[in-house]
């Protein structure tokens, strides 16, 4: 199967390295970053492209654009791993639309398009008999979508809740364990690269809420958008509040929750017993899936990071290879 990678930052490079290093039956035929592109229908020399990217900041030449790649017939699966735009989803949304409409499979780590236009993209993929996979958009390396769609297929999911943002979890863990103030813990998270220079998106619960939107639409077909989520962030949580919870063997974590029967979709700091499986440390994510047949299932793992995101993208690619690859 021939792969085109759009976005050659740390995730894109990570995906390329794994494909180049393993015998997966996948070959990379096109790569583009924001400034350049390269296409070779018979397969690219990934090691050379990685060296070129490191030396010049470009993976290919400026005269080949993302549009050239997407409208070409040099690939079977589009790997869309460019940076997220949560407001418009562009330009990734346009790329994904065009690839699906052209009968190409799509694997993306890009939350924006999936959260904003899930219904449209899902229908477009179905109409063209191709697969749209987005494991990396929710909880990084945790195989959450795969578990729900395949691992426990046939179960009715009654409720889903958990820790969906590693930055917030790190800050709350440090406030609880070291008695740091919110500002001190945020500063530390920034120094360690766990928080962006502008942490608004994480600490105000927006990132977690976007993941809930994707899950609500993908798991229950709910047609929700970000404005349907009740969102409270962690930026007003005090160290004293956490200490009050800890006195009773409890703590505070930012919990995202979808409870369809009670019409709840919310992100909010919540009091939770310290013995609860969702109380994970540092930047980990954890999600509990409540089902009718299987009972409760809790998944814990790394929710962010380039190799973790690449892991989810690779898993989606190999799933598509196994389902569709032999037809080629």
């Amino acid at each position: 199967m021939r792969i085109a990678i759009i976005g050659f930052g740390s995730v894109g490079r990570g995906v390329a390295e794994v494909i180049a290093a393993k015998t997966t039956g996948l070959i990379i035929t096109a790569v583009a970053d924001s400034r350049s592109g390269i296409i070779d229908g018979s397969g690219l020399d990934i090691a050379a492209i990685l060296r070129n990217k490191q030396a010049t900041g470009m993976c290919g030449t400026p005269d080949i654009t993302v549009s050239d790649i997407i409208s070409s017939d040099a690939y079977d699966v589009l790997v869309e791993v460019s940076p997220t735009n949560a407001e418009t989803g562009e330009p990734a949304l346009g790329y994904i639309r065009q690839a699906l409409a052209g009968g190409k499979h799509v694997v993306t780590s890009n939350k924006g398009p999936v959260a904003l236009k899930f219904e449209e993209l899902h229908a477009l993929a179905a109409d063209n008999n191709v697969s749209l996979r987005y494991e990396a958009t929710v909880c990084g390396a945790i195989p959450l979508m795969h578990t729900i769609k395949h691992g426990i297929a046939g179960n009715e999911i009654t409720r889903l809740y958990g820790v969906f943002n590693g930055t917030c979890n790190y800050i709350l863990t440090r406030m609880a364990e070291e008695g740091l103030t919110y500002q001190q813990a945020l500063l530390e998270a920034r120094e360690l690269g766990y928080a962006e220079a502008d942490p608004t998106y994480d600490v105000q619960g927006i990132d977690a809420a976007i993941k809930l939107v994707i899950l609500a639409n993908a798991v229950w077909g709910m047609k929700k958008s970000l404005s349907d989520v009740d969102i409270i962030g962690i930026d007003r949580v005090t160290t004293a509040a956490i200490a009050l919870a800890e006195r009773e063997d409890q703590t505070i974590r930012l919990i995202g929750e979808i409870d369809p029967a009670n019409e709840i979709i919310r992100v909010s700091p919540s009091i939770i017993p310290k013995s609860h499986p969702l109380v994970v440390r540092d930047t980990l994510n954890a999600v509990t899936i409540e089902t009718l047949l299987a009972g409760e299932i809790t998944l814990i793992g790394k929710g962010a990071g380039s190799s973790e995101t690449a892991s989810a993208v690779i898993a989606d690619l190999l799933f598509i290879r196994d389902c569709y690859g032999r037809r080629d």
């Binding site: 949580v237 509040a241 409890q250 505070i252 409870d259 909010s268 919540s270 009091i271 939770i272 969702l278």
Partner: peptide
């Protein structure tokens, strides 16, 4: 800011 317990549904 009101922080409720997780089981509080």
């Amino acid at each position: 800011l009101i922080i409720e317990s997780l089981e509080g549904n």
